[in-house]
């Protein structure tokens, strides 16, 4: 019998191997536990960051709403109420320099503009490209605007809420361009397929550094609206190289039965 076949030596060898197996298996279990713990911590951190981001977006949404109310109040006070006050004094004092009918017509025009701003008229009957065109047409006196509305007829089937939100996003982007970009040209492209909508808005302005953490209320508002629509929103910009906004919605429920 060989030495290793001696039962005592065989038992000793087997014991050593058993201890090694126990050690290896225990090590695998401990290391795996440590790794899983780290994975859980990462997941918790990610969840927390997502929740904080959502809270920040909701808060910004509230701030934007308040800002909008202030603007409407300011328009009503500065434009409409001031004209009606002038009209009242003109009637009371029988001032011949003031034409009551002209002042009333101006007041109606201002009230109509405020109303259209709050909610576009004939929203149901107007397609998204038409809504955008109505909005940008006054700006063509100041900017060179290239507008490519897309030719897919299914865009008229969009729900009113979706149309309105997309219009608001376009308004917000254009307002940002007007306020900050110093651009001379704006390009707007729409593309419709059966189940998706893509929108690209580009300007040739001064751009901005996107790596800065702080974002204005407008950009956060655009992000929140795109999230509510279940879509994606991206923007690319570099200093002195203009800015490009891309909005993409992929959801067949954006359409309603004709």
């Amino acid at each position: 019998m060989a030495e290793w076949q001696d039962p005592e030596n065989y038992a000793i060898g087997l014991s050593v191997v058993l201890l090694i197996v126990i050690f290896l298996v225990t090590s695998i279990v401990v290391l795996t536990r440590i790794y899983l713990k780290r994975m859980i911590q990462e997941q918790e951190r990610l969840s927390k960051a997502k929740i904080e981001h959502q809270q920040s977006l909701m808060w910004n949404s509230l701030l934007v709403q308040e800002k909008e109310r202030e603007r409407i109040a300011s328009d009503l006070h500065d434009e409409l109420i001031s004209r009606l006050t002038v009209l009242m004094y003109a009637i009371q004092t029988s001032n011949s320099h003031v034409e009551p009918v002209e002042v009333l017509q101006d007041s109606i025009k201002i009230a109509r503009e405020i109303t259209h701003d709050l909610c576009p008229p004939l929203l149901q009957q107007t397609s998204l490209p038409e809504l955008i065109e109505n909005f940008i047409s006054p700006l063509s006196e100041v900017f060179a605007i290239d507008y490519f509305p897309g030719t897919n007829p299914c865009c008229s089937e969009l729900k009113n809420e979706i149309k309105l939100q997309l219009l608001r996003m376009v308004q917000e982007i254009i307002n940002n361009i007007l306020k900050h970009s110093k651009a001379s040209k704006i390009v707007i492209r729409l593309r419709f397929t059966k189940e998706s909508i893509a929108m690209v808005i580009h300007d040739n302005g001064i751009g901005f550094d996107t790596s800065q953490k702080a974002q204005g209320l407008g950009l956060k508002n655009i992000e929140l609206r795109s999230q509510l629509l279940g879509g994606k929103c991206r923007f690319k910009s570099n200093p002195n190289q203009g800015t490009t906004f891309q909005i993409y919605l992929k959801n067949c429920s954006v359409t309603q039965p004709v």
Partner: peptide, 18 residues
Amino acid sequence: INSEYTLLNAAIFVYYSV
């Protein structure tokens, strides 16, 4: 990741390896 199943799996793994 389910902490109960992770512990159960670890116990089963060690015992059945031995």
